[in-house]
Amino acid sequence: MSEGRAAALGEQFEDLEQQHEASSLGMWVFLATEIMFFGGLFAGYTVYRGLYLPGFEAGSHLLNVKLGAFNTAVLLCSSLTMALAVRAAMLGRRRELVTFLILTILLGLTFVGVKMAFEWHHDYEEHLVPGIDFVSEGPNGRAIELFFVFYFFMTGVHALHMVIGIAILAVLTWQASQGRFGPERYNPVEMAGLYWHFVDVIWIFLFPLLYLIGAHH
């Protein structure tokens, strides 16, 4: 047991508790920078939404709310499985940990898959991808285009975060199957969990901002 302790402890730390606190704080600080990163985007979005509300509403109506809602549900479930994975890691239940990590990965993949295969692909076919293929006639054309600029950029950056998260979870799953985690060392799983929840929370903001502007008919 004490060897496990020594292996888990970085040389710069005095004890495991200090290490754990440091990595938690580090993760929170990192998430603070992420919030500022998305904050810049939200600020830009807010400015243009204020300027071109009708266009943004029209743009929003072109999105598929049902798919968006489905994806929201998928992400919320993945947050649950992630939380359960962290619990399993703390309790040292290897098999359970691996199962929940895999479940989380699958849910994450579902989200990204739906996003790309159904929504983005559909948008492309409808000529709604600014800069590549965008056609929108009518009075609000340019505002709709701006809406889609923000839509693609924000969901794109979010999806990128998802993909990074999935990659991290994949590595953790492999490590977990090797028995690298236990009550002495569940820090990496917990940190990945924090990150995963954060990415979910960003989506919770994106969904209403992008899909639910104005009344849908």
């Binding site: 400015v47 300027l51 600014p130 800069g131 340019r142 285009e145 701006l146 600029v149």
Partner: peptide, 14 residues
Amino acid sequence: LLHVGIFDPALGGD
């Protein structure tokens, strides 16, 4: 890269 109009006044940007 894409000229989508985020900062271009000719395309409605600011």
